[in-house]
Design a protein around this nucleic acid. Structure first.
Lengths: 137, 137
DNA sequence: GTTCTTGCAAAATATTTGCAAGACG
DNA sequence: CGTCTTGCAAATATTTTGCAAGAAC
């Protein structure tokens, strides 16, 4: 179990420290994306700066991606196995305005946009806001 | 001139106070979207809470729209004349990662996304990041 | 006078950095 | 030893609210 986690971290060139194993484990348990403040609450003991830097490391190594959903805090979610965080890998996200949860719509790739030639495209952040199935009931 | 501004405010049911006239004027002068902190700087004298509430009023009355571009602060830009801020009115935005300016790509509507039926769509925030024509040179 | 608006102050929240101690190889 | 990681503290930045004074009608 711990071996598997270590492997996934090492595959992304992340040294598997105790802290990182724990954070990774929490991330795998999430059905929806999680913010730094939310992560802090899950840990009670860990320092927010450490968690912050852990997430940063994870993101730099493309283990997770960040979602700027306009909820007030940036959220993070695990990348798909093969994700290189290139524009063609990106998917749409959904923020529920009732429960404030952010979902990765992994099946919905972000549409291609024809930018004016004068612009150079690096990435795309597409967030749909609305009400999720749970809150609709 | 002031008459024109007043008319545009009143058209959106916004009482044209001196403050609002000034803020509106600044907004019309922007080529790119502006954040609250940036707006504060333009005014020196005005209080940020007042500016904050002015922007909020403008947004509630669909005179401006907000853009969550992940730059650290929410940005605002004037709506098109006929905009009702409905999903079909929305356009794509572009954030330059070099100069941090956010452009309204008014000619590029946000693509339609087929959400699972269980989700109810309210709005879409689509931001493309990259390098703008000025910074590319 | 009643309602709406503004200015000042401060709270609340989120993000980020410096630095020294500790872990690891 | 040298590098990387962590914890604590604090700085920074942004957003938001309370409240009383003032303006508008």
């Amino acid at each position: 179990m711990k071996k598997e986690i270590d492997k996934k971290l090492q595959d992304k060139n992340i040294k598997p420290t105790a802290m990182r194993q724990l954070v990774f484990k929490v991330l795998t348990e999430q059905k929806t994306a999680i913010s730094l403040p939310e992560l802090e609450i899950k840990f009670e003991k860990a320092d927010k700066a450490t968690l912050y830097r852990t997430l940063k490391t994870f993101q730099e190594n493309k283990l997770i991606h960040s979602i700027e959903d306009g909820s007030g805090s940036v959220k993070y979610a695990l990348c798909q196995e093969t994700c290189e965080c290139q524009p063609e890998d990106l998917h749409v996200h959904f923020l529920c305005t009732k429960c404030n949860q952010t979902f990765c719509l992994n099946d919905i790739p972000v549409p291609t946009i024809n930018l004016p030639n004068s612009f150079y495209l690096e990435s795309v952040n597409m967030v749909i806001k609305g009400v999720c199935s749970n809150c609709k009931k």
